[in-house]
Amino acid sequence: MVTRAAIGSDEERVWAELSRIPDPEIPAINVVDLGVIGSVNVSDERVSVELLPTFVGCPAIGVMQEQITARLRALNVANDVEVKVSFNPPWTSDRISVAGRERLRLAGFAPPQAAETPGLIGLEELAVMPIAECPFCGSRDTTLENPFGPTLCRAIYHCSACRQPFEQFKQV
């Protein structure tokens, strides 16, 4: 048997607490499953968390920083809590966990497509439209109505099979 000193460690408590913090714009998914937690570092004095924004201009970043700071302060694992915004690595929609994708689907959001050529879409590839699977009936007979939805990270689709409009968490 291997005994793991890490079990029940402060770092694990921090991760567990983070996984109970919902995304402010789509509360169905927590910040860990969304993939926006880049790293967690615990020392005697300080808990440091790197937050990877889904979109550079996401207006919820400040709210997330405040929420995470408050919740981790209440954990009392160190005197100081620091939540820093980072673009290293850049958040991509591939960072959403399998569980997170399922939670999005249950909440009526199509999860993003897996990226085949991450970040390298140029003028030439523009004819290729992203595909989304209807979160209500599972059909792929859907059309992109608007790549820009109610928040920066959401696109609007229409399902031809069940005739429902739905939103997709955008592929980036």
Binding site: F55, V56, F87, N88, P90, W91, T92, P118, G119, I121, L123, L126, P147, F148, L152, K170, V172
Partner: peptide
């Protein structure tokens, strides 16, 4: 200048949607 390179990489992914829209 790494902070700029990282940010540019992130922005570029978003700008693809803008380009698609403009095109």
């Amino acid at each position: 200048y790494e902070p700029l390179a990282l940010l540019a990489g992130k922005m570029r992914r978003e700008e693809t949607y803008h380009l698609m829209h403009a095109d």
